[in-house]
Each structure stands twice: as C-alpha cells, then as structure tokens.
Amino acid sequence: MIDRIFAAALFLLALGYGCVALTLHAPFQYDPLGPETWPRLLALALAVASVAMARRPDSDPDWHGATAIRSLLTIGSALLAYAILFEPLGFILSTALFCTLTARYLGADWLRSALFGVGMGVGGYALCAWILALNVPAGLLPL
C-alpha cells in the first residue's frame, strides 16, 4: 500500500518537475537542446517509472511498532534542534547538550551521559578547531 502512495507522490513530483521544466527558457542558447530538454526527459522517465511501480507494488515494510517510531521521532527532533542551535550556541555547547541528551535517552545514566557529552564537545572542538584547523562555529564562548 505504502508503495502505491509513494508511487503517486513520485508521479506528482514528476508532474511538478515537468511543469517547471516547461517554463525553462534560455535567452541565448548555443546548443540545440538548451537547459530545458534534459529535465523534461527526466520528468517523463520518472512519470513512466512511477506508474510501473504503482502497478507492481512490493509488500509493506515492517515498521517495528510504536517504540521504534517513538525513538526515531525523538532522535529526529534532537538532530533538528542540534542543527538549529549549532551556529548560535557554537560547537562546544550545542554538541555537549546534544550528546548528553541523546546518550541519556538511548540508555546511559545521567553521569556517564554528561561526561560523554562534555568530552565530545570540548574534545571535539580541540581536535577539530585547534589540531585539524577545521571550520567549526565558536558561538557564544569567547574562543
């Protein structure tokens, strides 16, 4: 069933993508195909393939029940929060927060989670920013 729904979504994607491709037009064009032909071909191919998928769907996957879905949603939101806070808070604070909370949620006790989180934040920053000279945000801390 989910296969049919996803195939329908893909068909809509092909339609939308195709419609945008129809509006493409280059003011000056040196090659006979221009920027619009390739996307149109792709839209057509995806439309055909999505119909083929809807005609012969696979059986539904195993969603592993409510516990798995709940932990996916929790970790998903944690990742989203981490992405939102990454730049404003900076690497050390956001990473310490994210690692402590996810390790705690996934089954470590509070003390270990906190040690792990702070270690990842401080150690990660030291390794990335000072030793490897990578671009990681300093954020609130005056570093």
Binding site: Y82, A83, F86, F98, N135
Partner: peptide
C-alpha cells in the same frame, strides 16, 4: 561499543563534516 554512544558520535561527525566544508 554501545550504540548509545556510537549514534551521537556519528551525528557529531556528520555535522562537523557538512559544516566544515
């Protein structure tokens, strides 16, 4: 290695990877 630590480590690596580039 328990997954409760491995999962956050992978997440941090992906964030560093994307942001640093």
């Amino acid at each position: 290695i328990p997954h409760k630590y491995l999962i956050p480590v992978i997440a941090v690596l992906t964030f560093i990877g994307t942001y640093s580039v």
